[in-house]
Nucleic acid binder design. Structure first.
Lengths: 223, 223
DNA sequence: ACCTGAACACCGTTCAAGT
DNA sequence: ACCTGAACACCGTTCAAGT
């Protein structure tokens, strides 16, 4: 029925070449999230983007959660790269925490993707390994090193969740929500918040992050 | 057709009395979340629990997000109650952060509900007001007080998100995920994590939380 | 072995029409 | 004024049947 000179492999690659492997699916899923946000990432939309039926995805991912975990794992690529030589441990921690924040910020809703999953892939484990390694050199008890690593990760995720929530309140919603907050901040009822409003609504998230991280790292010295 | 002696008001209260006010809807929504988790909270299931059509909810909540914000606001009730007299500022901060954690833990998936919303209701604002108030007494710059309040809140939310994620890996999934993690933790590839495994998989979340919070509060003294 | 097509049991949201 | 009924445009997941 088809042209006789068309080999079966050429037929397979008619239109787009068949893209269905786990890595292509994960990359495409991250692209869809970047374009339209996490809420728009649907197994059906992903399948369509891969030129495949929705059910086919379940041959590669047991569930949507599994896909999300693979996306989180992919996002952390590079976070455990070797640290520059000669960095003080304080700066090593700042660098590592900053890498996690940057990795989450690289994709729209990245923190939400990460917070909802538990990857045990190499990117995630190497990152944790590196972070705990730096902390074991400076923490008295080994338990404290582990707990401090968790503290840094939880703070970073919590912070970035908030940062991206503010980001994704797009053009029209952000001013509205600021106005709402401003209206709610009656200086008689909430004198401290009224005084804090400028800082609270500042978009200098890097400064907020640096402040919190510095608190944690400083606490390590003294505690 | 109906019994002649049945007044219309008696008919209205046949079965359950008509429960449709924002407070009842929020309370019922929190009950549904406690029973079956956040993923099972559906506008349609909530409507059914309130003996109402799904569309009716949209007369009280513009969107599901609005409902979730109202739930988050309700969860924070009591968090801004007056602090006991004579507490050192360190203990005031510990108390306030602990109240937020407890409030989030009180409901299944409480941290996820909270993290996905931005309430400007009185419970939320009074809590922030109180927290910033305590910090302004001890922080040099007013900017630092605000940023530290954000740090404490972000850490608490990030921590509790993780705590409840571990909790909701119910009976059969938890052992499976621990086995998976254990298998992944090759001591040659991840020596630090292998050494940290006991702490990493500990369920003493209160101790983890206390450690992280203490780091932040200690950092405040020195910074 | 791998994919399609079609179905199952749902979603959030809107809105005419009723009372 | 408030609610119902019904619809619109979707979901995640499963699985027989095809090739």
């Amino acid at each position: 029925m088809g042209p006789t000179s068309t080999s079966s492999s050429a037929q397979r690659s008619r239109g787009r070449p068949r893209k269905m492997g786990v890595p292509e699916a994960v990359a495409t899923a991250l692209r869809l999230v970047d374009e339209d946000g996490l809420d728009a990432l649907t197994m059906r939309r992903l399948a369509a983007a891969l030129d495949v039926q929705a059910g086919t995805l379940y041959r590669h991912f047991a569930t949507k959660q599994t896909l999300l975990a693979a996306m989180a794992e992919e996002m952390l690529a590079g976070c455990a790269d070797p640290l520059p030589d000669g960095l003080a441990w304080r700066d090593q921690l700042t660098e590592l925490a900053g890498r996690l924040r940057t990795a989450l910020l690289r994709h729209r809703d990245g923190a939400r993707v990460y917070a909802g999953t538990h990857s045990v892939g190499p990117n995630t484990l190497n990152y944790a390994e590196t972070l705990v390694g730096v902390l074991r050199e400076t923490c008295p008890a080994p338990e404290a090193a582990t707990r401090t690593a968790l503290t840094i990760i939880h703070f970073t995720v919590g912070h970035t969740l908030e940062e991206q929530a503010a980001q994704s309140l797009a053009g029209s919603e952000l001013p509205a929500s600021l106005t709402l907050l401003h209206a709610a901040l009656d200086p008689d009822a909430y004198p401290n918040l009224a005084a804090a409003e400028a800082t609270l609504t500042s978009t200098d998230f890097a400064a907020h992050f640096a402040h919190g991280l510095n608190l944690i790292i400083t606490g390590l010295t003294t505690g």
